[in-house]
Design a protein around this nucleic acid. Structure first.
Lengths: 210, 210
DNA sequence: AATAAAGTTAAACAAGTGTTTGATTGGTAT
DNA sequence: ATACCAATCAAACACTTGTTTAACTTTATT
């Protein structure tokens, strides 16, 4: 894991926003340099290349998520059920807060150009799936969860639903008669709805035996 | 709705594949021309620009989906429950079959650069949501479905789960101990799992009253 | 067969790309 | 003060981008 200095972090932050709104290819190194008020050469100087800058962005973001999830699952003052619920809430909170970044991530995953980035994402996903699978097992032993649970499909439903809701939020604001709300209020409402919706789905997935 | 001749359709088909695997910005008009064995100028000649070519791709694909959904929902030899199940199955079948195209669509949506394309996608989504909302109402009248159903969230769960499963299918093949399967077999298995999973979720969303 | 239109081409175009260079600055340690 | 090294800069580099041009072949119409 690399350590970045202030200047690098400033560039990373600026680039993250630009990549998110205009895409990786759609953003030139000069755009980044202008927005960050630095010279173009500094990007190559600090990161080696535009591609490596992107990797640095992912490294920072993914590292944070990884740490938080591990911390939560280690905590043994909570039951598996509680942990799953918090996992859902925090995932939604996180994605809603850094929508920009997740837009890049989606694009990168969808077009899987950079092997380095895909590798990082894959590692994160696998690691998380393993941790959560263990959590589920714990809950099964306690008798809280049913015996057969497909962890991957469950996580895909969470991640997928949240993503799809964010991506299409503008489409449906009209449809669901929420035009009167400010963007902030509407996002708050969406967040709340999502949390209830996904936790309800998880309850079915985890407990409804038949 | 435009009508395209054979040459145009050939270019559309080639471009679709390239855009899907390398992204819109990642694919040059020369790449397309080479792959389609035509001269670069033909793209401008037939479509006006690279951007308009992309729009043409979306027009063709979206038109097909729109028609099929409308046809299915009009059919009155089936109950609402049956229609919902078919809707799920056909969605999964469709996305699995044209994974390439859906990768572009996801990227386009995530980075919303082209207003023209976003407009087309939005129209499709709204139209479909309206049609399915009507279908749900029908089911509610018959007493098959519960009273409060959030159609948008329900659709987001379907679309999102399928998408996420496809995007990350490589990550998890190892994790779920399916390395021995060929890619074709693994996709078949995924498709089957997805259909069961989502229909189960829909059953909860549509009927589980509490 | 003559004329017009459509299709196709290689080459040129202007603009933008990521990266490197080599000079210059500013601060730190000798 | 000197030497040193990292930071910063404008400029240049080599290359790719999407699009247009103008010449040509092919096809269809009269």
């Amino acid at each position: 894991m690399m350590n970045f200095n202030d200047k690098q972090l400033q560039i990373i932050e600026t680039a993250e926003k630009l990549f998110a709104s205009k895409g990786f290819d759609g953003t030139s190194v000069r755009d980044i340099a202008d927005a960050a008020a630095i010279n173009v050469a500094m990007i190559s100087y600090y990161f080696g290349s535009k591609e490596k800058l992107m990797e640095a962005i992912f490294e920072v973001k993914i590292g944070k998520v990884q740490m938080r999830v591990e911390e939560l699952l280690k905590d043994n003052s909570m039951t598996p059920i509680e942990k799953v619920n918090i996992l859902v809430d925090e995932h939604i909170e996180r994605v809603m807060k850094s929508q920009q970044f997740y837009r890049i991530m989606i694009c990168e995953q969808a077009s899987n150009k950079s092997a380095a980035i895909m590798g990082k994402v894959k590692m994160l996903k696998i690691k998380n799936a393993e941790l959560i699978a263990e959590l589920i097992k714990e809950g099964q032993k306690k008798g809280d969860f049913k015996k057969k649970v497909d962890v991957v499909l469950m996580l895909n439903t969470m991640v997928g639903t949240v993503w799809q809701t964010i991506i299409t939020k503008d489409h449906y604001q009209e449809f669901t008669n929420n035009q009167s709300l400010s963007e902030e209020e509407y996002e708050k409402l969406l967040k709340k709805k999502l949390m209830i919706h996904i936790k309800a789905l998880f309850k079915t997935i985890l407990t409804n035996d038949e």
